[in-house]
Design a protein around this nucleic acid. Structure first.
Lengths: 151, 151
DNA sequence: TATTGTTATACTCTATAACTATA
DNA sequence: TATAGTTATAGAGTATAACAATA
């Protein structure tokens, strides 16, 4: 498998995909202890930053790859009492999801252990200043590919 | 969701997971045109670098999170005639997977388009020299978490 | 006893397309 | 006509534990 891309560039691509996968997998057991998955955790975390709730459309484009996938996840969170859905004020087609008090409680219970593992399995493995460098490098990738999705 | 980790560090972790996911998703449609998934592509690519084949155990620890998951994927590739399995020379418990001529043909057919998309969806979004910086930053993360898995 | 690999099982997740309602 | 969200469906992937064979 040697070809037009030099090894450095291909290696970066493999490293990105593999590292993301390994980090997420390393964190998933701890989340599972609280009945959460990485996707559900990211939904709750996003909602906890938005007291007024978030439109389903926005959550979908930010966190998953299909609208139906988000409906599935949020429906489960709602059944568990962690999230509520209600009609949007300005657009009668719209639905706004909000985190509930129970959802906040669960998130607060899961968060310290999560942070601990983010440190142990990721941040502590980076050189000093590495987190910031990494974020800066990946920012345009995330922005570029999210823009793609909108199209 | 503001807490013990400063924003920079948490952002790096989210950026890593999201970027890896977005890049893989951006490439998966092109692979699907050749009947492949990202996991199957990575298995074929690994085998194409190893003329003598690779032990199932090694493939599993490098590419997936469970032995049974690898068996599932390789069984499918074998059914498609892209991979063959045979007993290991040195260990009668062991199984060695090898890519077939058809597998090589398919990989060569899929590779150019794959590389093109790796460039368009990832490398071209990085600053000059970014690929190497990224790889260096992520190397210890990948190595550290792979070592974890062995434990 | 430990390891290799497979299997059976049961479950979760995903994406597509069809649908309703509203803009 | 286009968009927001849901639903139905059908398929793919996953992990666990139990198992057989070998070290």
């Amino acid at each position: 498998m040697s070809d037009k891309l030099d090894t450095e560039e291909l290696s970066a691509y493999f490293a990105l995909v593999v590292a993301g996968d390994l980090v997420q997998h390393a964190l998933s057991s701890q989340l599972a202890e609280h009945g959460l998955t990485p996707v559900k955790f990211s939904i709750l975390a996003s909602l906890s930053d938005a007291p007024d709730g978030v439109r389903m459309r926005e959550l979908a484009s930010a966190l998953v790859h299909s609208r139906s996938g988000l409906t599935y996840q949020v429906a489960q969170l709602e059944r568990q009492g962690l999230v509520s859905r209600s009609a949007a004020d300005d657009d009668d087609r719209g639905v706004v999801a909000r985190i509930t008090a129970d959802g906040t409680t669960l998130l607060q219970a899961a968060f310290p252990g999560h942070l601990e593992l983010v440190r142990a399995k990721f941040l502590d493995l980076l050189p000093r200043g590495g987190a910031e460098k990494l974020r800066r490098l990946l920012e345009p990738v995330v922005d570029g590919l999210r823009a793609d999705k909108a199209t």
